[in-house]
Amino acid sequence: MKFSKNSKLKLVLLLFLLNVVLSRPIWAGDNYGSLLEGYVSDRAGLLQPEEKRELASLLADFEQKTTNQFVVVTLPSLPPGESLELFSLQLAEASKAGRSGQDNGLLLLIVSDERKVRVEVGTGLEEKITDGRAGRVIREVIAPAFQEEKYFSGIKKAVMTLVNWTDPSYFPAGSEGAKLRDQNEPGFLFFLVLFFVLIIVSTYYSRIEQRRFYKRGYSQRTMGPVFYPISRSSGHRSSGSFKGFSGGGFRGGGGGFRGGGASGGW
């Protein structure tokens, strides 16, 4: 072999260290799993029970409709000596989020005492949620909200933004989630202008029919169609399709991760 004795020794040491890191009994194997309880595992206690349920039902519904599995985990702190990235990867793998083969899982990890956030993106979602986008969510959505201690709204907006990037058709137009999507897409402005132009033109030409126009469900104030005012997640809540327990129905599909995503803090 081409390695000198010295470097061989170092290598052995290194591998030994890696081994120790990877097989630390407290966090190894099933113990990662014990940190997880379904879609939302709030170990740091940042969320109210009903907020947790709302998030979980949103994520459950998203999974049901698109098969993408998103998981949110909050922790007070990382195990001593553990790096955020390595820990997050192992936690993501333990959660088995995403379908095997599609690898469409995602883990949003929040470490409250250390003020660290990581978005761990499943291999299959890396094209939709690029590292740059993942970083943007942390910088522009999570960090500002968390600085004001608005944990729920920060997490929810972040999840919705990630959902929009993954599947733009998930939130119906006009819903809370769609508004967020529109904010995030620069191209939207163009369509907005086009939309208004069309509306103005059409109202101009159909003034005589205006009354019928409003009856069909258009509001004068917004000059746009009025869709369901209730967002899907809250509408979903009233339908009672989740089983009371926030983790109800979550089953990791065995999706793979390879370290994509971004880290940040607040």
């Binding site: 990235e85 690029t130 590292d131 740059g132 986008r133 993942a134 970083g135 943007r136 910088r139 390879r258 370290g259 994509g260 995503g261 971004a262 880290s263």
Partner: peptide
């Protein structure tokens, strides 16, 4: 900032 994230993500994937 986004390029930094891409690079950091790539480094992480690499490791």
């Amino acid at each position: 900032a986004e390029l930094q994230d891409e690079l950091a993500g790539t480094e992480n994937r690499l490791s």
